[in-house]
């Protein structure tokens, strides 16, 4: 059974149909990249998987549970599905360590001491040892983004969603963040990434989906999609990027 299973999902904002029948399966431990032009609905798709946006038709199963079931405990779902955004969205009034500790302590009510040990380990893992007590306002974009990743990981999710997490960073810091994600993937974390970093997608992804105007135009292993795309739209998009 796939960990995440998206079936014929339709999603509109008012009259605007943003997703028009999207399907994808993500197996445990897989790294999936979603690419496509701006406005094609990539962010919307990822937000639907986390239940931040609802859908009008179709189904999204995470570990066999329907995300759009009104009876579903949204909190239980979100514990399984971590998400990292383009703009990091750290809590500016909390230090890096507090940012990472907050949800497990306040929401999951886990013992503070235990969470702190885990949070420090996570901060070390994203190579930010020494920055524990620094506030987000005093961290660079790349550092903030890595704190955001650690913060999501502190909830021990089964799958991580990344929405263009390097798009707001300068090229130098992009590398640090991508390295962190790469390590995460190597450890077997299931990842769904929206990205414009084609080199990264090629290297890390098991499977790449190309979306355009709310549909998945084609998908396949990166070496296949990047070199012998069948669809004209995919080829055009890739030629613009490379």
């Amino acid at each position: 059974m796939p960990l995440v299973s998206v079936r014929d999902v339709h999603k509109s904002f008012g009259k605007l149909e943003v997703l028009r029948g999207v399907s994808m399966d993500v197996k445990k431990g897989e790294v999936v990249c979603i690419i496509g032009p701006s406005g094609s609905g990539k962010s919307t798709l990822i937000r639907c998987i986390n239940g931040l946006n609802d859908i009008q038709r179709g189904s999204i199963l995470v570990e066999g549970q329907e995300v759009n079931d009104p009876k579903l405990d949204k909190l239980a779902l979100r514990k399984k599905v971590g998400i990292v955004f383009q703009q990091y969205n750290l809590f500016p009034h909390k230090t890096a360590l507090e940012n990472v500790m907050m949800a497990p302590v306040k929401v999951l009510k886990e013992p503070k001491r235990e969470v702190e040990a885990r949070a420090r380990a996570l901060i070390a893992k994203v190579r930010l040892s020494g920055k524990e007590d620094v506030y987000p306002g005093h961290l660079s974009g790349g550092q903030q983004q890595r704190v955001a990743i650690a913060r999501s990981l502190a909830m021990r999710p089964d799958v991580m969603l990344f929405d263009e997490v390097t798009a707001a960073l300068d090229p130098e810091t992009v590398k640090e963040v991508l390295l962190t994600i790469k390590e995460l993937a190597a450890e077997g974390m299931t990842c769904i990434l929206v990205t414009h970093e084609m080199g990264f997608a090629r290297e890390v992804a098991d499977h790449v989906y190309f979306t355009d105007r709310g549909v998945i135009v084609e998908h396949g292993p990166p070496e296949e999609l990047f070199t012998e795309a069948r669809d004209e739209r995919t080829r055009r998009f890739l030629s613009q990027i490379f």
């Binding site: 986390n50 979100r78 514990k79």
Partner: peptide, 19 residues
């Protein structure tokens, strides 16, 4: 987006407001 980040970390709407 900051409140949304809290929501995606399982905060209930009241917890998001309070914290």
């Amino acid at each position: 987006a900051t409140a949304e980040a809290a929501e995606s970390l399982c905060f209930s709407s009241w917890q998001t407001y309070a914290y």
